[in-house]
Design a protein around this nucleic acid. Structure first.
Lengths: 126, 126
DNA sequence: GCTGGCCTTGCCGTCGGCGGCAGGGTCTAG
DNA sequence: CTAGACCCTGCCGCCGACGGCAAGGCCAGC
């Protein structure tokens, strides 16, 4: 299939597909007229990429998964490198959760203090 | 004081201070020779900015706090606009926490599945 | 033959928060 | 008088993941 069809089937833009090819992430074969040609394997890889990006992985981080698929594995996650990315991403997410939790507490505290201060100020004023 | 001293006292770069001035966030008076001049009020505002940025607010979002200080309030959070920013940021953080929690679960699930699949594959292989 | 819808490459623009550099001016201590 | 430590403005660069546009090639149907 050509780039437009793949884009539509995967729900991404053709611009994104060209970008992935630039990165060497999703290289396409070429027809005689220079058009990019994609097959079902490309679609599978693309779905994998979008799923992982949806989980917060960068395009670079999806590379091991794509290469794993290209190596003939049933899923992109079946390779050591992919699992390493999973692990590091999980650690990263956990760190973010911890930081965000602390930020949330701080923010809630500041908000309450601010509201109370305004309240007292209003009382003083009247 | 001049820009270098303020930068050092607040632990920021002079480049950042010029950037804040460009944004109109921390405008400075000028000496006869064109040098920026800052006072203790500037330092207070700057500390407020850095604290809020540390909590994940954008520079634009710190603007109400700075203006609140400039209006003579004891803290930057004592104004209605600042409190609105607090609230919206808190909501934003809560949304992020929820999303990240879901992502974490998904990621952990995928990791476990991947590890298990590899395990079985290795067993098959031997 | 021509229109319209695909496709190609290439390159600039976006967002935020600065970093870094060039090419100057200013002030102070020795 | 000069070195060196400040300061100024202005402008390009960076990160990531594309968006968007121009200028052109290719192909199907009418």
């Amino acid at each position: 299939m050509r780039i437009g069809e793949l884009a539509e089937r995967a729900g991404v833009s053709t611009r994104a597909l060209r970008h992935y090819e630039e990165l060497g992430l999703l290289p396409a074969a070429r027809s005689a007229n220079g058009y990019r040609r994609y097959d079902e394997e490309h679609l599978r890889a693309l779905v994998e990429i979008r799923t992982l990006v949806g989980l917060g992985l960068s395009l670079e981080e999806t590379r091991p998964f794509v290469e794993c698929l290209r190596a003939g594995h049933p899923t992109g996650g079946s390779c050591a490198d992919s699992i390493a990315v999973y692990r590091s991403k999980l650690a990263e997410v956990d760190a973010s959760l911890a930081r965000l939790g602390a930020v949330r507490a701080e923010l809630a505290g500041q908000l309450e203090r601010a509201v109370r201060a305004r309240c007292e100020f209003t009382l003083e004023e009247t």
